[in-house]
Design a protein around this nucleic acid. Structure first.
Length: 642
DNA sequence: CCATAATTCTTTTTT
DNA sequence: AGAATTATGG
């Protein structure tokens, strides 16, 4: 117990020890939020609250895992960790147990973004809808938006009046039917169906209300209406609900997150206690001053008063560069310089507004031999070769149509569109007599399926690679193509597959075929932030959104230009600009000491050069905190003339 | 059915 | 500019 309460300031201590009733913790950046959360969970357990009666919701799986580890350390003895996870992973757990009540099989599959899109792409022509009027991506976004507000297709159809809504509602219901037919759920369904389950079966809700007597939600400012509703349902009985967040760090309104959820907490729970954590332990005084000044420009927010006992630290460096290439050069050069002062590679990070910006930086880092890790962008599990192989595994496990469509002719085995239609009509087994190629494929899958019950996961994957002659397929399709880092493309893709084999071998100790199922479960909910690994000595490259919750000694924010940050799409709406400002605020408050904000005089966008003025956010930093530099050197070292 | 050529899209941010 | 999708000819 002493261990748990040691090294906490009075407010933190209060937040840790107030265990009953609703509690709102307003936690500014660097205020020791994670510390408070883990200590609070440990404190609950130390006070004889059974771990299984605790539910903690985090924003990423990585945060969940870290929290579990830290609690184990604090408690010392071997305990079962409480249920800690993201909204999606928690709902997945509940649905795996209960979803049969809603008419799905418990073995349901999860469709990711790509899968969703292929479903919609298939549906739109079937419904004879013009795909230029209803672009599949847009339709997918609308459906996801509706689900985040808990509007199902029936409700939407009832209220559809105009042509657009009526057509959209046809797409929505056809989409949902298709998913149901395949016993599939998309990300939003995980939460939506959990609520449906609870609302339709009060005794089930009651069971979980009694189970989760103590609920904790992190990053509460980024909850959307459906998540809000879920938490409200679960917490309504015991009202031991603790939420943590910071309205100034709300950056997900584009996917319907609503920071008013945090501002209204006291209305939802009038008896709530509110604790504000405003001492910053992370950043220098200069950085904190700049951050406070910037965020104060936002109209819609709770006023804050962040303070720190840290030293002033170096000035904030604002640097003007020639273009995105010199920008990257500059970052590389600064990293080399600071490394000589004793900084490690893992102390550095580069943030950008859009993933596309990472390219120039990546190329420069490769050229300068700076080891780096790119987070997000072309996500590992989205790469073609990885998705192909996971689709094989998925089809072996669940026989869903989307996976089948993906693998049926990869590598090419003479089964085209027309033949595939036949298979869909007759089913794979019956279609075998239509064409010898189908029979061959059927036998392949049947044998793999059989083997999957005995082989460990990595062995199974290796067998798939062997049986499909996948390496040769890569050579045929990508051979001869050489990537920016001088590696042949087929070789690079093969390396990715080796990495996948490595990941799979982590599941080898789990009894087959259970290992396969657990692997598929994990990969389905994998997120960008989960791949961040502080142990490795690398420079991390990521979007500002992914940066939330992290900290680094040296932070570079690239592309501080109007139209980039704030993004051009946000400029129409002042509320959106406020969100961009929060994004910038999140970015700068990640820094412990050194902060570089860089803008380029020109930048290629879509293969076209454009010139943008420096970001308005830079002008919001007080002059006396800034040191300004210009960097217009070309690779050869010549100065460029204006 | 499949390899190549032509074309059209992409870039906001993501669980 | 580069990737992804679709059209074309074999």
């Amino acid at each position: 117990m002493e261990e748990i309460l040691k090294n906490l300031n009075p407010r933190q201590k209060e937040a840790v020890t107030t265990i009953n009733g609703p509690l709102l913790i307003l936690a500014g950046p660097g205020s020791g939020k994670t510390r408070v959360l883990t200590h609070r969970l440990a404190y609950l357990i130390a006070n004889n609250i059974a771990p299984e009666n605790i539910l903690a919701v985090t924003f990423t799986n990585k945060a969940a895992n870290e929290m579990k580890q830290r609690i184990a350390k604090l408690i010392g003895e071997k305990i079962y960790a409480p249920l800690i996870g993201t909204f999606h992973s928690i709902c997945l757990k509940i649905l795996r147990k209960e979803i049969d009540k809603l008419g799905y099989k418990k073995s349901f599959v999860i469709y990711d973004e790509d899968d969703q899109l292929s479903v919609i792409k298939k549906i739109i022509p079937e419904l004879e809808i013009n795909k230029d009027q209803f672009p599949p991506k847009k339709a997918a976004a609308i459906i996801s938006g509706l689900k985040s507000e808990f509007i199902d297709y029936a409700t939407y159809a009832e209220n559809a009046r105009e042509y657009f809504e009526k057509t959209m509602s046809r797409i929505y219901s056809a989409y949902q039917n298709e998913l149901k037919k395949n016993n599939a759920l998309d990300f939003d369904d995980l939460i939506m169906l959990t609520i449906k389950l609870f609302e339709k079966f009060p005794e089930t809700l009651n069971k979980y209300q009694e189970k989760f007597q103590y609920i904790l939600v992190d990053e509460y400012q980024d909850t959307d209406p459906i998540q809000y509703r879920l938490i409200k349902l679960l917490a309504s009985k015991n009202r031991n609900i603790c939420v943590v967040g910071d309205d100034a760090q709300s950056i997900y309104s584009f996917r319907n997150a609503d920071f008013r959820n945090i501002l209204n907490f006291e209305k939802d729970y009038p008896e709530a206690k509110v604790i504000t954590l405003d001492q910053n332990y992370r950043s220098t005084q200069n950085i904190l001053d700049a951050a406070s000044k910037i965020i104060s420009k936002n109209k819609y927010q709770k006023p804050k008063n962040l303070w720190t006992e840290n030293p002033a630290g170096p000035l904030i460096s604002i640097i003007s560069t020639w273009d995105e290439k010199t920008e990257a050069e500059l970052i590389a050069q600064k990293i080399e310089e600071l490394k000589k002062q004793g900084f490690k590679l893992k102390d550095f990070t580069v943030f950008y507004r859009t993933n596309a910006q990472s390219r120039a930086i990546e190329e420069t880092f490769i050229r300068n031999n700076i080891p780096y890790k790119l987070i997000g962008a072309t996500k590992f599990y989205q790469r073609k070769e990885i998705k192909d192989l996971i689709s094989y595994l998925k089809f072996i496990a669940t026989e869903d149509l989307i996976s089948l469509e993906r693998i049926i002719n990869i590598p090419p085995r003479g089964i085209g569109e027309i033949t595939f239609e036949k298979i869909k009509r007759l089913g794979l087994k019956k279609a075998t007599k239509e064409k010898p190629e189908i029979n061959k494929f059927y036998t392949l899958i049947r044998d793999l399926k059989k083997k999957s019950e005995k082989l460990s996961l990595s062995q199974l994957l290796k067998l798939v690679l062997e049986e499909t002659d996948y390496r040769n397929y890569l050579k045929k399709t990508y051979g001869g193509n050489v990537l920016a880092n001088d590696i042949p493309e087929d070789e690079a893709r093969w390396q990715n597959i080796q990495e996948l084999v490595n990941v799979c071998s982590d599941y080898d100790k789990i009894e087959p075929p259970q290992g396969l199922y657990e692997f598929l479960e994990k990969t389905a909910l994998f997120s960008d932030a989960d791949e961040i690994n502080e142990q490795k000595d690398l420079v991390h490259l990521m979007t500002l959104h992914t940066a939330k919750g992290l900290e680094f000694s040296v932070v570079f924010i690239s592309g501080c230009e109007e139209g980039i940050l704030p993004h051009s799409r946000s400029l129409i709406n002042p509320l959106d600009v406020e969100e961009e400002r929060r994004l910038f605020y999140v970015g700068i408050t990640r820094s412990k000491s050194h902060l570089y904000c860089i803008f380029a005089q020109r930048r290629s966008n879509w293969g076209q050069k454009e010139a943008n003025p420096p970001s308005r956010f830079l002008t919001e930093i007080p002059q006396e905190l800034i040191s300004f530099e210009e960097f217009y050197k070309k690779e050869g070292g010549d100065l460029i003339d204006f």
